[in-house]
């Protein structure tokens, strides 16, 4: 049963393109005022899902409602109330910053001035460049303008498809700060991203891969779905350490993470000291020095890889 007033309700949604199952029996709900993340690699079905929710594409099977309205039967009702920011090309590169905003306002039968209060915290950052052509903006500025354009008609929900793809790490943080502020003001935000670290900024995330949802949970809980214990291992030379650990008979997964390797073992109930001693002996016999390992809490990316079955697409 769906909770009353859930702004997005998706039931057994499927969509096929030729032989590709872009969405495969997907179900989830977004709660009022939630910052909900769809996290996963490109080609996982995130964009197809957004297009269906934005009433730009019809599902093959299943149903979806946005703000209580059916995406197939009540599309006009939905369109007036949704702010949608597609992944690519959502701005007119030959129009200036200000002209883009004016255009999007007029399409929705409103004015820049009427929507200004809501967009002000974002738009003020790009207003000094209001006479610049949108095509000449940097990646971070383009995203802020696109967000302003998606907000100018005061939507009740925001659908943002990969707003931070290809954007540098600093601009991404700033963009997420803005989304956090919008969510605090009561707006429901559904956002997708291929960057796993960004999932931490959401209230709940759905891990999306190959048209399916692998898990839906609070970001802090996702790590708890990792099977078994996880360790951060260091050693020199690092490139060689990857191979040496993978050859260890009980290794389940060995994956580079920043300046460490994340290691999980097939055996359960093994003490940290015991495992550390075993691996120290194994690696030192194979030319690794400066060996160190510490137990760590699994993160979203660890879980994502484990739920993928440890196999690439």
């Amino acid at each position: 049963m769906s909770e009353p007033g859930s702004p997005v309700v998706v039931r057994a949604l499927s969509k096929t393109f030729g032989k590709t199952r872009a969405l495969d029996n997907v179900s989830f709900e977004v709660r009022p005022g939630e910052l909900f993340g769809l996290v996963g690699p490109d080609g996982g079905g995130k964009t197809t899902l957004f297009r269906i929710l934005a009433t730009l594409m019809l599902p093959d099977e299943g149903s979806a409602t946005v703000l209580g309205r059916d995406v197939v039967k009540e599309l006009w009702e939905i369109r007036a109330r949704v702010g949608y920011m597609p992944g690519r090309f959502s701005l007119y590169p030959d129009l200036t910053v200000e002209e883009n905003l004016t255009f999007f306002a007029s399409v929705f039968g409103t004015t820049r001035e009427a929507g200004y209060e809501l967009i002000a915290p974002i738009y003020r950052q790009i207003e000094p460049f209001k006479d610049r052509k949108a095509g000449a903006l940097s990646g971070g500025m383009k995203q802020k303008l696109a967000l302003s354009c998606a907000l100018v008609h005061r939507p009740e929900i925001l659908l943002l498809d990969e707003p931070t793809t290809g954007v540098d790490a600093v601009s991404r943080r700033e963009f997420w700060d803005l989304l956090g502020a919008l969510q605090t003001s009561g707006l429901t935000v559904v956002v997708s991203t291929p960057y796993m670290d960004e999932a931490l900024r959401c209230q709940r995330v759905a891990l999306v891969q190959k048209g399916r949802l692998l898990a839906i949970d609070a970001p802090g809980e996702v790590g708890g779905r990792f099977p078994g214990d996880l360790y951060a291992v260091r050693g020199t030379p690092r490139h060689a350490l990857i191979g040496v650990l993978r050859e260890f008979p009980h290794a389940v997964s060995v994956q580079p993470f920043g300046d460490t390797l994340h290691y999980s073992d097939a055996r359960t109930g093994l003490g940290v000291a015991e495992l550390t001693a075993e691996l120290a002996t194994w690696t030192s016999a194979r030319g690794i020095h400066d060996f160190d390992m510490q137990p760590i809490e699994p993160g979203i990316e660890d879980t994502f890889m484990a739920l993928m079955g440890g196999v690439a697409e």
Binding site: D42, G44, P194, P256, M305, A312, E313
Partner: peptide, 9 residues
């Protein structure tokens, strides 16, 4: 960019 975490590694 945009590649799944296992392929990335």
């Amino acid at each position: 960019g945009g590649v799944d975490p296992i392929t990335r590694r």
